[in-house]
Design a protein around this nucleic acid. Structure first.
Lengths: 250, 250
DNA sequence: TGAATACGTTATGTATACAATACCAGGGGC
DNA sequence: GCCCCTGGTATTGTATACATAACGTATTCA
């Protein structure tokens, strides 16, 4: 290789994976579209071997689909695929919460969760919420969910939850973003925050069933509001990932 | 390449993946052991590129772990990892059963399940059950679970369930195999069959909560008996996959 | 004698060449 | 006029060569 600039700080494989995922989620590559390796080589700057590794990883991640005759295409999701994935994640997070409650969590471990909770409370006190605060909310909410998941002390479960969140809109952040278009966004966030509060309380009091139930309800709230948000599609044009949802089916 | 024999009927990548998975599950490669690409090239007969693709896939599958400094090692599972994975699968199958019940399933779609059920009934009528019948049971049970999963009509959920079953002993077959060592094996299978019967009934009557509950109970039964089977470890020596469970921790 | 460094070996990460297959276009036959 | 067959092209699958980083070993110095 002569003139290709190589960034040696991260592996080419990782670089290609990030670049391709970005292209998919940003909508540069449309669902159903075949990904050409050669084209990916040009856009990512890596060579074919790392690109192929990245493609395999993205396929396992669920964003790509293998074409029987060879190669990969961008996977298309129905609205139901997305809502199922959210409910799926809620179910898994419910299990995580139950594990946490049943297995016991020390006050020290719960501390970061409570800090997160307090920080979100602080944000929600603003009426109406500012753009910056909303952006912070997205981060804090993702952090809360990640911490909660960790409390289960179950690596296989954590792994599965991460997987379930791979689909666009199925991650904590994606879900919040989707709802941002709704006029009732702030009320929704307040209800969600109440769920957060309840799950911590339940874990603290070792009420596994209650902890599980509230996380599932949390997901159902998300599903309901994603549906509403999708009806308001005009407000969502800022979210290119939306293009991933095929409009025809479902 | 001069003398390497190449089987062109399946892709080298798939061949390598199957061969490596087999080596891992059969215990040829021990947990924690580093997998050398060169060695894998020799044992699988594929060249480095497909071997690497297979390694990446197996890592995503959860059987391998990436070593930070490069390469892969066989993942080690604690007993709790396994039991968590079984419970995880039960939870997901519960969700699948609930989806099936809520979304409705035609009599025609339920037919294969009922046939499966009847076939298992037939097998269990033998006392004591023969080795051949037991082997048929393993197949039929796997089929039942696969069919049930499909009834959810939720591709993301099906995908996740498949993933959850990747760990040794976490698949329907693996679980049955593990229990085969227990003296109460036949009673356990009879109880499990009752669960199967109930879940079909619940789906037929569109009782989502009941369908879900029984699948979760089904998994809890599996967890309890896996624990028992692991106490009887001597009987299980015929199962090399057991070596994958690290004995020190947990 | 122990520790640290330098060197050699080995393995992985990356790039590219080669092979085979699938897709498309054009022409000929029915 | 339509379908099938054939040839070319493009793209993927596979193999291997090269570069680079990690690990082990031996030697030297304190």
């Amino acid at each position: 290789m002569a003139e290709r600039e190589v960034d040696r700080s991260v592996s080419q494989t990782v670089k290609a994976q990030l670049a391709l995922r970005d292209q998919i989620l940003s909508g540069s590559l449309r669902p159903g579209e075949r990904i050409s390796e050669l084209q990916a080589v040009e856009t990512t700057g890596a060579s074919r071997t790392p690109v192929r590794m990245a493609l395999v990883r993205l396929e396992e991640e669920g964003l790509l689909e293998a074409i029987p005759s060879g190669g990969f295409m961008v996977k298309a999701f129905s609205e139901r695929d997305i809502s199922d994935s959210i409910e799926l994640r809620g179910t898994l997070e419910g299990l995580a919460a139950r594990f946490a409650a049943e297995r016991g969590v020390s006050a020290r471990e719960l501390e970061p969760l409570k800090e997160c909770l307090a920080a979100i409370d602080e944000l929600l006190r603003q009426v109406p919420i500012s753009i910056e605060a909303f952006s912070s909310y997205v981060t804090l909410n993702a952090r809360f969910h990640a911490l909660l998941t960790e409390l289960s002390r179950s690596p296989p479960l954590v792994r599965q939850i991460d997987r379930a969140a791979a689909l666009p809109f199925a991650s904590p952040s994606g879900f919040v973003m989707a709802q941002s278009a709704l006029p009732e966004a702030q009320q929704i966030l307040i209800i969600a925050q109440e769920h957060h509060r309840v799950v911590i309380d339940a874990i603290e009091n070792r009420e596994g069933a209650r902890a599980e139930a509230v996380m599932r309800e949390h997901a159902r709230l998300a599903v309901r509001n994603l549906r509403l948000a999708l009806r308001n599609r005009t407000h969502l044009d800022l979210l290119p990932a939306l293009a991933l949802i095929k409009t025809a089916t479902d």
